[in-house]
């Protein structure tokens, strides 16, 4: 393995960019392919498939044998709103193996006491997302009901293509939200990607039960996400 490639691989992984380490098993030569890098022919098709499935493996192409080691960024959850549901969701997400960050500018909600040991940022989503941008491997959960806080991150999440976008609120609240997002230039199909009412329909009543519904919904979107680039 080329030492330069090892550095490149680690830089990309740390920056949460999807990469494949491609090794020709015949002569040992290797390359690092970033998602979107053009590679022609059957090998290019195999690389595209591997980026979608996330599965590493052997590929025979052009009469050579290649090993594709796929490195997709680990899935994480950004929650807008340090509310009661978020307290339960934060604990459950950690158990399920997700990294989770809670963002809320309202310092009465975003307190260390309510979120001990959780990555909590008491600041406006606009400022937080500037420093920590959303990506396709991030789930965005908006639960404040307050358009001033929720709308911008929801809009960003749709534009970025977050694998999950969920928003809490009654059908009436959501109908008004749909109008505001349309006014921001989001199309109907894009807005329809929002899970609202949020979470799987399991009849959840308490904040903790709603957190279960949301987490299950996130997992369903992660594991059953459509192949990227496929017609949608």
């Amino acid at each position: 393995m080329d030492p330069f490639l090892l550095r490149k691989l680690n830089t990309e992984r740390t920056a949460r960019r999807a990469v494949i380490h491609l090794t020709d098993l015949g002569d040992g030569r290797d390359r690092v392919i970033r998602e979107g890098d053009p590679v022609a022919g059957p090998l290019g098709d195999a690389l595209a498939n591997a980026f979608r499935s996330g599965k590493s493996g052997l590929v025979e192409a052009e009469e050579r044998s290649f090993f594709l080691n796929v490195h997709l960024p680990p899935a994480r959850i950004f929650v807008i709103g340090a509310v009661h549901i978020s307290q339960a969701l934060a604990k459950m997400a950690v158990v399920a193996g997700f990294d989770i960050t809670i963002i809320d500018p309202r310092t009465a909600f975003a307190t260390e006491e309510r979120f001990a040991g959780i990555d909590l940022v008491a600041d406006w989503p606009e400022d937080v997302l500037e420093k920590r941008p959303l990506d396709a491997y991030t789930a965005l959960v908006a639960v404040t009901h307050d358009p001033k806080i929720d709308d911008l991150p929801l809009s960003r999440a749709l534009a970025t293509g977050c694998f999950y976008v969920g928003a809490l609120g009654s059908r009436k609240t959501h109908a008004r939200r749909v109008e505001r997002l349309a006014a921001l230039g989001h199309g109907e199909a894009e807005i329809a990607r929002i899970s609202a009412p949020i979470g799987l329909d399991i009849g959840a009543a308490s904040p903790a039960e709603i957190a279960v519904a949301i987490l299950a919904d996130i997992i369903a979107h992660l594991r059953r996400r459509p192949l990227r680039g496929a017609a949608s």
Binding site: R13, P74, D99
Partner: peptide
């Protein structure tokens, strides 16, 4: 989970190099 740089073999490989 986020890349754990204290346990990640590729990060360790770079550090050793």
């Amino acid at each position: 989970m986020e890349l754990d740089e204290t346990l990640d073999p590729l990060t360790i490989a770079e550090r050793w190099m």
